[in-house]
Write a protein that binds this DNA or RNA. Sequence first.
DNA 1: ATATGAAATTAGGTTATCCTAATTCTGGCC
DNA 2: GGCCAGAATTAGGATAACCTAATTTCATAT
Lengths: 231, 231
Amino acid sequence: MAAKPFAPVTSESIGDYLKAILELGGSEELRVTTKALAERLRVRTPSVTGMLQRLAAERPALVVYQKHHGVQLTAAGKRRAWELVRHHRLLELFLHDVLKYSWDEVHDEAERLEHFISERFEDRVAAILGDPEIDPHGHIIPHKYEAAACRDEVPLARWALQTPATISSVRDRDPAALREIERLGFMPGTGLVVERRNAASSLSVRIAGQADGMRISLDLAECIFVIAPAG
Amino acid sequence: MAAKPFAPVTSESIGDYLKAILELGGSEELRVTTKALAERLRVRTPSVTGMLQRLAAERPALVVYQKHHGVQLTAAGKRRAWELVRHHRLLELFLHDVLKYSWDEVHDEAERLEHFISERFEDRVAAILGDPEIDPHGHIIPHKYEAAACRDEVPLARWALQTPATISSVRDRDPAALREIERLGFMPGTGLVVERRNAASSLSVRIAGQADGMRISLDLAECIFVIAPAG
DNA sequence: ATATGAAATTAGGTTATCCTAATTCTGGCC
DNA sequence: GGCCAGAATTAGGATAACCTAATTTCATAT
């Protein structure tokens, strides 16, 4: 949308920045760099600097911004960002379960719509889905007004060798990777062991209960998140 | 959204203008005035003039624009406008039937989302609704790629006295009017007769099969569209 | 302690959309 | 046929979000 004289204090762009800061900061809420944001949002660094200054100047401030030292979300920024994450994950599950999207189709549509659905829409979707906890890719759907629960998940690429792991979630932004993950059977909940790291940027992995292992690329292993097996 | 250097040839604003031209032009596709558009879109007339010049300059042109003499849609403009009308009406029905919105809540949400849903979303919603023909307010849902069928409907305010009429549809943009219409029982499909016009800008109306008539304001009667009863 | 390269910021510019104020066109009326 | 009110347009400006080019800051390695 354009520059109405009394633009809302939030916009699609602002939402995208806040969500990116949330996701790049991780559960430790590290300060996020200008460059990382520029890459994630596919804009140039001066655009990021400009937007961060705006977000910090907003009343109430949405980020804490120290020139040359990155940004963190304030409580207000976190609230908005988690709201968008909730919208995104609810929409993904809704598109998958109700509108029969395949799991690699849901991300792009959810990424667009998350900015435009009303609170009523959010509530009604949650209701017809039965207040779900987990989205189609295994991510926790945060509750309303609540910073999401976090899990100690790690990309499979960094999991210790020979140590049982359970797939907790998969990155949702790459349709090709998602199709590959599905084809190979790496669905959330699946147990596995990394047997060794090979020279050619690949990992030898064996799924629990299967005799044969398989090789997957490190790139793919960066898209699969694992936790220690339950119990 | 903002001004990316290679903005899409369509935007939320452009869509709003095209839809407004479609709706104000009516089925005869009359030329629409700058002022009428400015009022409908709640912007000032210079903004309209500027946008009309853009739409006419677009390749392919979306409107035929003659300075001082109004605009009409071209085929390309009509296609886009009808697409949005289809989105709008499908969304209204979806929000009503699936997400359990009341019929006065659906318009605003549909008006926002119609610009952002993908073709896939449109198709899946149509599929789960069983390729519906009519939206919750009685409007025909145009088929894909097809200029909508038109009916010879007339606002109740202009229907002949003492002549049976059937309610074909109701205007969807005013939640208060919709609640009133529902309370009084003027749902699409209802038969009625206008018994007389009163001094105080009101009409005396009797619903088919009911003994007592009632008075409704001319304003409300402008929101109710009627046709001759089915053959 | 300083040089240096990467990262970040500032400076200045573009486009889309809106605005207000000033100007021009059009169509009806005498 | 000329005048006038209202409608429409042009002129000039604002804001959001982006961009490229130029400059500054930081962090580290000698």
